[in-house]
Design a protein around this nucleic acid. Structure first.
Lengths: 145, 145
DNA sequence: CAATTAGTAACATTGTCGGTTACATAAACC
DNA sequence: GGTTTATGTAACCGACAATGTTACTAATTG
């Protein structure tokens, strides 16, 4: 979608916070689940705190927790919080404006990207963190019997 | 969308071929319109030739031309021809499978990405190269009077 | 005061993308 | 046939982005 994995890791983080419910979870514990460095986790959580999806508490016994019910958080909220301006796949695209095609293609492509982005974001808006949380619990393979 | 500009440049290329109709257009001329190196253009055209959207002809008087009417080419065709496997924003995402969340989040996220991708691709499938070509001709600013 | 944790800056490492050079192959034209 | 023009690709370089890592400060608990 964007080349990076910020969104994927962020959903993982929030799913983990939903999993651990009301308790304050330190970044090191989340980092262990994601298998990365705690600073990477804190960087992403910094953006999620700014958009008020997550509470942060410093000090011993501190950590992160959901600031909003999981059913109120859609994946689009997470996407927007964590993903920088779409940049719309036109980063290094600067056609020659002296050519009649180059002069107009940029704005045409911009319109296309806006529509494509909207199509994608609509799908993300249809999935809540609570649904992701449910899927985590259902069908635990090997935990039957 | 993908971080790179392969798709944007490819649409530009095909719009240029539509603009220049039946004639064989050399990569150097297209490169001038896109303002890049001819090899970059040929690399992308190589993929478009493989999917039979474009004809290539070597030698003097050679060049590239559309192999199919512009009205039969959707932006999704172009996207698929030119963009490698979506990789779905999970490139460097390898959570810890020993954790109950890490063990299941991957497949859940995969499902999310498939839906998001489908939403985006649907929008691309609704736009044809012929429509882009039309927009190139309409409303030439400063060409009135 | 000691321990724990968020917050953040700074730097290293890695991978991808685009640009460039170089050369082989093929076709047109004199 | 030889010259010119063009595609087809490999190989390499430099720029940039993303992630990982270290190191430090600030806040909070007990």
């Amino acid at each position: 979608m964007t080349g990076n994995s910020r969104f994927a890791v962020s959903v993982h983080i929030l799913a983990y916070l939903a999993f651990r419910q009301g308790s304050a979870v330190p970044s090191a514990e989340i980092a262990s689940s994601v298998d990365t460095n705690p600073v990477v986790i804190r960087r992403l959580l910094s953006a999620l705190v700014k958009t008020r999806l997550v509470n942060a508490q410093k000090g011993a016994t501190g950590g992160f927790s959901l600031a909003v019910p999981a059913s109120d958080i859609t994946l689009l909220h997470i996407y927007r919080a964590v993903e920088p301006q779409p940049a719309h796949g036109m980063n290094r695209f600067a056609p020659n404006h002296k050519c009649p095609v180059g002069a107009k293609i940029e704005s045409i492509l911009h319109g296309v990207f806006v529509k494509a982005q909207a199509g994608m974001e609509h799908e993300l808006s249809q999935v809540t963190l609570a649904q992701v949380h449910e899927q985590l619990h259902s069908v635990c393979p090997g935990k039957k019997k």
